[in-house]
Computed example of a mutant assay.
Amino acid sequence: MSSLHGAPLHLLAAVTGDAGNPWFSWAYVRDNADTLTAALRQHVELTAVSVLIAVVVAVPLGVLAYRVSWLTGPILALSSVLYTIPSLGLFAVLAPFVGLYATTVVIGLVLYALLVIVRNTLTGLQQVPREVRDAARGMGYGRVGLLTRIELPLSLPSIMTGLRIATVSTVAMVTVGSIVGGYGGFGELILEGFRNNFYKAQIMTATIATVLLALVFDVVLAGIGRLVTPWANRRRA
């Protein structure tokens, strides 16, 4: 039996794929650079828009859950229920109302991102030391000033952690949007690869690109978090 460096050819094929359908191919990346760039742009846009909207909705909900104790349970329960809805079922429910558009994908992604950001916002606010609040009140801070000048800034590390987790999860969830009229970023290429006689190079390239994009988002947000919470960095040091 023929072999390369002592490895049987059938074993090499099992690891790398056959010559006509390899698991990864630089030729595929080179020949489809424009397609990959377009998928990257769509993936980034869907992720950024969804997470931004989720922050705008979730942080006030977290504040409300913190300030109005009897709403804490219902808010967390509702966001938890939304998080557990299967993505395919959620898009199927949304489609008759908003159609098969990017808006459908964004709504679904926002709903999935709410739980983590709401929970981390609430946790951050609850962890503000009581003596800090008492000192702020003694200095004349009212409810609004206490929230905006003391509590929210001190809650930023927890909020940023929730934002990072939600963003990475959203990057992965965007791929599911490929079932909604072509709004799935790299998920489009993954799905197309399965339809195209299980085109391994396309599937693997899009999968690796999705993972790398999630890592880039996480690193960028971690850097932003360090910039906006310098006191937390000094405390850890």
Rank of each mutant, 00 (worst) to 15 (best):
V168G: 10
V144L: 15
R137W: 13
V128Y: 05
R130Q: 15
L146K: 06
L82W: 06
P74W: 11
S50E: 03
T121Q: 09
V68F: 14
V110F: 10
Y112T: 00
L146T: 08
V106G: 00
A58Y: 06
T167F: 01
A54V: 00
L82T: 01
V56D: 04
V128D: 00
T84E: 09
L78E: 04
R149A: 14
S87K: 08
L122G: 04
R137T: 07
A77S: 15
I179V: 15
G187D: 02
L163F: 12
A102P: 05
V105K: 04
G177E: 00
A95Q: 11
L61Y: 13
M139C: 15
L109T: 01
S158V: 07
G140A: 03
T103C: 06
L52M: 13
S80L: 15
L122A: 01
I150E: 11
T103K: 13
R149L: 14
N120R: 12
T104P: 02
W70I: 14
P129S: 01
L152Q: 10
L147P: 02
L76C: 03
I53W: 12
G99N: 10
L125N: 00
A58H: 03
L125Q: 02
M139V: 12
G140H: 09
R130K: 13
L71Q: 14
V118P: 05
V171R: 06
T170Y: 05
S80V: 11
A135R: 11
L64H: 05
Y112S: 00
I179S: 06
Y101Q: 14
G142R: 12
V55N: 09
V81R: 10
L71N: 11
V176L: 15
V105E: 01
L189C: 02
P96V: 01
V93D: 02
R130W: 12
V63P: 01
T170P: 01
T161C: 09
T104V: 08
L90C: 08
S50H: 08
G124I: 04
G181W: 01
I75D: 00
A58N: 04
L156H: 10
P129D: 06
A102I: 10
L156D: 02
L52A: 14
I85R: 07
N120A: 07
L163D: 00
L88S: 12
V110E: 03
L152F: 13
V144P: 08
V63E: 01
T121F: 06
V98D: 07
S169I: 05
V81M: 10
G124S: 04
L52D: 02
I85G: 01
G145Q: 14
V98T: 13
A65M: 08
R149T: 13
Y112D: 00
I107Q: 09
G177Q: 01
S80R: 12
L71H: 13
E151V: 04
L154D: 10
P129N: 02
V176D: 05
L71T: 15
Y183S: 08
V59F: 06
L146I: 02
Y183F: 15
A58C: 04
V171M: 05
L163N: 04
V106A: 00
G140P: 03
A102M: 13
Y101H: 15
S169R: 14
S158Q: 13
L100A: 12
V98S: 07
V59K: 04
A166W: 06
W70N: 11
P96N: 00
E188K: 06
L71K: 13
V171H: 03
L64C: 04
L100S: 08
N120G: 03
I159W: 14
P157E: 09
F91W: 07
L78H: 09
T148Y: 15
